[in-house]
Every structure is written in structure tokens, then in C-alpha cells.
């Protein structure tokens, strides 16, 4: 093991997030601590309203915490400006959302190409990476389709391709199978597990469906903004 492998890819320290709705304060996260090593496939499961999306948003630098901090490759996100955070999301993080997350006016190809355009990759580079990635998720044939002409499962495969095309350090998935039937949901999770294994992409998947945990290397449970069984190993990291 090399030295920097000992530093976790992601480290969360005492993370809290409050939302104030008028006079009521919702404590969505209450002091979460977590470490995620390079190559992990962590599933965070919990009931609706337990704080899963909030946690994912803070990890993904989409929102800022009330207290505590997130360290990605040792770097504190709280120290970065909004512009730097956008750059970081573009370069280092991939997002997979529950649904409706493709840009409807762009083709499958263009959707996957989008983050590469933001990165300023050359035309040739983009073409190579997009077609590789579409092949990887089994959609090479559908490159010219519009999202509206896709099935739910195909939709999520495109979303996965888009999340991975920049070769991010960390991919965050918010209930990627929630809007799919269980068979298609399984396929999506199998794809995630395969990409994790073959491409060594680190995934964090949140879900309210405990069944999804069986694809995890590790799984944790969240309830009322607290992690219950921090860092329980389900499968060994290889």
C-alpha cells in the first residue's frame, strides 16, 4: 500500500446542517463523521427525510454545511469559493440523480459530452471519451436519441455515463433506482458495482431501499440526521 492510499479520499468531520423554515429549525444532519477510502462503494440507506440528500449535497459541494467540514483528498471544501466549488464538481465529482436529470434538448451523446465541454476538452478527446463511456453502459447505439425517447433504465445509464465521463474521483448517486422497477433497478446497481470494480471508481449511493445495500462494499444507515453503524464492512475492498 502506498502512503497516500492511507489518506481517505473523503473525510467528513462532525457535519451538521440546519434548515430554518420561519421559526422552525430542521436539523437535517446532526454531527456526521465518515471516511470513504479510494475505490469504495458505500451505500447509505435510510428512511425518507432522514437526511440522505442533504448529506450527499454537502459531500458534492452543492450546499454548504451549518458546521463541520468535508475534506476531499485532504482539501477542506469550506475554504473554497463558489467558483472553485463549481470547478471541483466539474473535475472531481460525478452526480447521478433520481430522475429527470438529463437535459431534454440535448441528445444522449450531447448530454454525456456536456461536462467535457465545461472542462474544455478537445473535440477528438470528447468524441473518444463519450463513445467509450456510452459503450461501457451499453448505449453506443442510442447516441443520437433524445432523453424523452429513452426508457427509465436507459435514462439512468446515460446519467451514469455523464457522471463518469470526466473520470471523477468520486461519484455520488441519489436514489438512482428509486424510479425504476426492481429488475431495472437491479441492473443499474449491477452496472454501478461493475464500474466500481473494473474502473476503480469510488461510489457513494444513498437509498431508502435496504436491498440496494447488497451491492455495497460497505453500508451505513442514517436516521434523523445521524449515521448509525459507521463504516460497517459488507464486502472487503480489493
Amino acid at each position: 500500500m502506498s502512503k497516500d492510499f492511507q489518506q481517505p479520499l473523503l473525510k467528513i468531520e462532525n457535519l451538521s446542517k440546519d434548515y430554518s423554515l420561519g421559526k422552525i429549525v430542521v436539523h437535517a444532519l446532526r454531527g456526521v463523521n465518515l471516511e470513504v477510502p479510494q475505490g469504495d462503494l458505500l451505500v447509505i440507506s435510510g428512511p425518507s427525510g432522514s437526511g440522505k440528500t442533504t448529506l450527499l449535497n454537502l459531500i458534492g459541494a452543492i450546499a454548504r454545511p451549518t458546521s463541520g467540514d468535508v475534506f476531499l483528498e485532504g482539501k477542506a471544501l469550506s475554504k473554497l469559493s463558489d467558483g472553485r466549488l463549481a470547478e471541483l464538481r466539474n473535475h472531481k465529482i460525478g452526480f447521478i440523480f433520481q430522475s429527470f436529470a438529463l437535459i431534454p434538448v440535448l441528445s444522449v451523446y450531447e448530454n454525456v459530452e456536456y461536462p467535457l465541454l465545461l472542462l474544455g476538452a478537445s473535440r477528438k478527446e470528447r468524441q473518444r471519451r463519450v463513445m467509450d463511456m456510452l459503450g461501457e453502459v451499453g448505449l453506443g447505439e442510442l447516441a443520437r436519441r433524445r432523453p424523452n425517447d429513452l426508457s427509465g433504465g436507459q435514462h439512468q445509464r446515460v446519467a451514469i455515463a455523464r457522471a463518469l465521463v470526466t473520470e471523477p474521483r468520486l461519484v455520488l448517486a441519489d436514489e438512482p433506482s428509486a424510479n425504476l422497477d426492481s429488475e431495472t433497478g437491479d441492473e443499474i446497481m449491477k452496472l454501478v458495482a461493475r464500474l466500481n470494480k473494473e474502473q476503480k471508481v469510488t461510489f457513494i449511493v444513498v437509498t431508502h431501499d435496504p436491498v440496494v445495500s447488497r451491492y455495497a462494499r460497505r453500508s451505513v444507515h442514517i436516521r434523523d440526521g445521524r449515521l448509525l453503524n459507521e463504516g460497517v464492512e459488507t464486502r472487503a475492498c480489493d
Binding site: D82, G83, P104
Partner: peptide
């Protein structure tokens, strides 16, 4: 609105 959220999440600037 949702779409703006999505593209901003994947790195589009304001």
C-alpha cells in the same frame, strides 16, 4: 428550475 439545478451541480457556472 430543476434543470438549472442539474447543470449547476455538474459544474456549470452561474
Amino acid at each position: 428550475i430543476r434543470e438549472v439545478g442539474t447543470v449547476r451541480a455538474i459544474g456549470t457556472r452561474r
